[in-house]
Simulated assay, not measured.
Amino acid sequence: MQITGTHIAYLHTCHRKLWLFANGIQMEHTSEIVAEGKLIADSTYLDRARKYTELAVDGVKIDFYDAKNKVVHEVKKSDKVEHAHIAQVKYYLYVLVKNGIENPSAIIEYPKLKQRKFIEWSNDDIIEAEEWVERTKAIIHSENCPALIRKGICKSCSYSDLCYITEE
């Protein structure tokens, strides 16, 4: 199985969500919050598709890549799980480096907040990214779904109904 940026983001958000997603239970298509995030990404930077290219490499799909400047642009709705967003784009940078792109960087954009977060690549990130891949694979290949851990972000998760189905 190819590890994607979504897997890495879910590793840093919720192991249960990661396991469910990787094992074919995908709830994003039913989520209004996910739909709102896609709408923000599609409607905020209208010229982005013309200026940048979509890049798919080693199972990773980067929607907006500035090949000239070697910059990944990632649009997010909110910064609630910013640590997961940073891990996701660092994983993208890791994949780019593995494929011969030297010194890539990334910009995480939060248009609703009018904020940007700049992420630089460091060769020290290689070890961390490889550890994420191993941890992700271990969770994905586990026979059992990880236990439910209640977090503040659960209410806005596309898997919330599934995780809390037995509760009133």
Rank of each mutant, 00 (worst) to 15 (best):
M1T: 10
T6K: 05
T6A: 10
T6W: 07
H7P: 14
H7C: 03
I8F: 02
L11M: 03
L11V: 05
C14M: 00
H15N: 15
H15C: 03
H15A: 09
H15V: 02
R16M: 05
R16T: 09
K17I: 12
K17Y: 06
L18I: 08
L18C: 06
W19C: 01
L20P: 00
N23Q: 02
I25C: 02
M27I: 04
E28F: 06
I33L: 14
V34I: 12
V34H: 05
A35R: 14
A35P: 03
G37S: 05
G37C: 04
L39F: 15
I40C: 09
A41D: 13
A41V: 03
D42Q: 09
D42M: 07
D42F: 10
D42P: 06
Y45W: 13
L46N: 06
L46G: 02
D47G: 12
D47R: 04
D47Q: 06
D47W: 09
A49I: 11
R50S: 11
K51T: 04
E54F: 01
L55T: 09
A56H: 12
K61L: 12
Y65P: 08
D66H: 06
K68S: 12
K68Q: 15
N69E: 15
V72G: 01
H73G: 00
H73E: 04
H73L: 13
E74T: 02
S78C: 05
D79L: 07
E82K: 05
E82I: 14
H83R: 12
A84W: 09
A84E: 04
I86V: 11
Q88Y: 01
V89S: 02
V89C: 02
K90L: 13
Y91W: 00
Y91V: 00
Y92Q: 14
Y94T: 11
V97Q: 04
V97S: 01
V97D: 07
K98L: 07
I101M: 06
E102V: 14
N103R: 10
N103Q: 08
P104Y: 07
P104N: 01
S105D: 08
A106L: 03
I108H: 06
I108R: 03
I108N: 03
E109A: 13
P111F: 00
K112H: 04
K112S: 14
K112F: 09
K114S: 13
K114M: 15
Q115G: 01
Q115L: 07
R116Q: 03
K117V: 14
F118I: 11
E120R: 11
W121D: 03
W121I: 13
S122K: 14
D124R: 07
D124V: 08
E128D: 15
E128S: 03
E130S: 08
E130P: 10
E131A: 14
E131S: 15
E134W: 09
E134I: 11
R135F: 03
T136N: 01
K137L: 15
I139G: 01
I139A: 02
I140A: 02
I140Y: 06
I140G: 00
S142A: 13
E143K: 10
P146V: 08
P146G: 02
I149V: 15
I149T: 12
I153V: 08
I153E: 06
C154D: 10
K155S: 13
S156R: 06
S156F: 10
S158W: 09
L162Q: 00
C163E: 13
E168V: 10
